[in-house]
Amino acid sequence: MNNTKELIALLNLDKLDNHTFSGTSVTIGSAIVFGGQVLAQAINAAYRTVPENRFLHSLHSYFLEAGDLTLPIQYKVDEMRNGGSFSTRRVTASQNQKTIFILAASFHKKEKGFEHQTQMESNLKQPEELLSWVDMVDKFGAVLPKSIKSFLSIKRPVDFKPVEVKNPLKPENKKPIEHIWFKLKGEIPEMDTALKHQILTYISDYNVLNAAFNPNGKEYSFANTMTASLDHSMWFFRDFDFNDWMLFSAESPNTFGARGLVKGNIFTREGKLVASFSQEGLMRPINK
């Protein structure tokens, strides 16, 4: 999967009946299904059961079991409520009759109201000043650890350019923050709000736990720690498009008890806040 067209095809589920849908999986380098894919496919299913004039404003989800890349995933949507302004859906994802993921999503009709937003940091390097993951492999591939080179070399529909670049050969403790510019690859078609939300949800599960690792980067990394997404929440605000770079801005307020919490915001390059997110992940040191 190397471009936006292929990503859209992955997220567009097959309809089995009015409330049941089926999807396939594509690896991003791990042996199990990528959590962002399940999130986005579940949103695809939920959107197909709500009125056209209602749009996703929040989601809350739990990852219960690792997904099998070789099996289809079935998404069952329950209509929990259809009110005057809001519609609520519950989505259950399963493989072989085993539930692997649950989602609660709320949809709201467009309304006018008060407005304010937090500001994007103004002193960050711009994407043109930074190396993408592909650039890093091209420039440093000969000295990168094999596992990191392999991960960075996976074909993806998204380009990532980290602002704070870590040296894997000289690990150090850093602030619990992470800033990454991202942009879709290939031709970007016209998108409705539902598709934008699905794609942004897919991307939001990349890079999340990095901020939680940073304060202990000298001792711990993805190489010596068992990691997994435990839950994921998002809130959607303003409209946007994918024609320019966008910023993933994350911070980790806490790691404790083999879990790390990360929260943050997603901005357009101009600084418009389009979404916020939070995730707690398993961060269990591997005892060798």
Rank of each mutant, 00 (worst) to 15 (best):
V77N: 13
G29D: 12
L184T: 08
K218C: 09
A42R: 14
L152C: 05
E190K: 15
R81P: 06
M80Y: 04
N243V: 14
L10G: 11
T70V: 10
L69V: 00
A258I: 01
T24Q: 11
A104D: 08
Q74H: 12
V165K: 03
V33A: 08
I43L: 13
S153G: 06
K272S: 02
V91R: 06
P176R: 12
R269V: 01
T193V: 13
M226G: 06
D17G: 14
R48D: 12
K109S: 11
L230I: 15
T92V: 15
I73S: 14
Q117W: 00
M136F: 00
K218N: 13
S30L: 13
E164I: 04
A40S: 02
P253T: 04
Q117G: 01
Q95V: 15
F86Q: 11
N287E: 15
L64K: 03
G36L: 00
Y206W: 08
Y220H: 04
S87L: 07
K263Q: 12
L144N: 12
E52V: 09
A211F: 13
D239L: 08
G23N: 13
Q41Y: 01
F86P: 14
K109G: 14
K263I: 14
A194Y: 13
G36H: 02
P168K: 09
E219V: 10
F55I: 11
V91H: 06
F114A: 12
I102M: 07
I148P: 09
G29K: 01
N96F: 02
S276D: 15
P157K: 12
S30A: 06
E115W: 10
M80W: 07
Y206M: 04
E219Q: 15
K174Y: 02
S122P: 01
N2H: 15
A258C: 04
E6P: 11
V91S: 08
E178L: 07
A46K: 10
G84I: 11
R284N: 09
Q37F: 01
E280N: 13
P157Q: 11
Q198D: 02
L10C: 06
D17L: 15
W133G: 06
I177H: 10
D68N: 09
L71F: 00
G84Q: 14
